[in-house]
């Protein structure tokens, strides 16, 4: 027995013409397969219609907010981690490149190891001489400065400097507590 187009008519929503409805009715009287199909489908549709909407457990919106906050933090942490790695890689590359350039310049300038050692000794001697000059200058200043101001003048200067420092520390602490700053 042919079941088409009767199966289609049974399972589609489209309205049937009077002739189609009559033909379907006649077919269903004779065809047990289509009758069972139609009956089963109507049972399924009735079951669906009798089933109400489901609701999540109370506090769904609060759980959503908590998840959003956690996810934002996770995204930020991942971003900071990536930024740190990229910065570290860039610095390492820069240092390596600088080292290579300096090395190349250094070895291009000198012809032998003796010459390199001589230059190093000369540079070291110059550095020690400069340090010695600064040491002498500092000694002169230490001997001269206390005579520039009276003891009360030094006390006032110390008070001004410490007040300025305290003000700076307080300002920085307040700025750190402002919203939008980690």
């Amino acid at each position: 027995m042919r079941h088409q187009p009767f199966e289609t008519w049974l399972l589609f929503d489209d309205p049937l013409t009077p002739d189609q409805a009559r033909a379907l009715d006649e077919h269903l009287r004779a065809c047990e397969t289509c009758r069972a199909l139609g009956h089963s489908w109507r049972s399924v549709a009735s079951l669906f219609q009798a089933s109400p909407d489901l609701e999540p457990a109370p506090g769904f919106a609060n759980r959503w907010k908590a998840r959003l906050v956690q996810e934002d933090q996770g995204v930020l942490t991942a971003r900071y981690r990536w930024q740190s790695w990229i910065t570290l890689i860039l610095i390492a590359n820069g240092v390596s490149l600088l080292g290579m350039l300096l090395g190349m310049t250094f070895f291009d300038t000198f012809d032998s190891l003796t010459e390199i050692l001589l230059v190093l000794v000369y540079r070291l001697t110059s550095l020690l001489t400069v340090i010695n000059i600064f040491q002498n200058l500092l000694a002169i200043l230490i001997r001269t400065i206390p005579g520039l101001l009276s003891p009360s003048g030094w006390a006032i200067l110390a008070l001004i400097v410490s007040s300025g420092s305290l003000l700076w520390v307080l300002s920085m602490a307040r700025l750190a507590r402002m919203p939008g700053r980690a």
Binding site: E7, T8, L11, D13, A36, L37, S40, W41, V44
Partner: peptide, 14 residues
Amino acid sequence: RLYRARRALAESWQ
């Protein structure tokens, strides 16, 4: 898709 699903649902019901 709806036609196919209805048919499958009816058969599962049976």
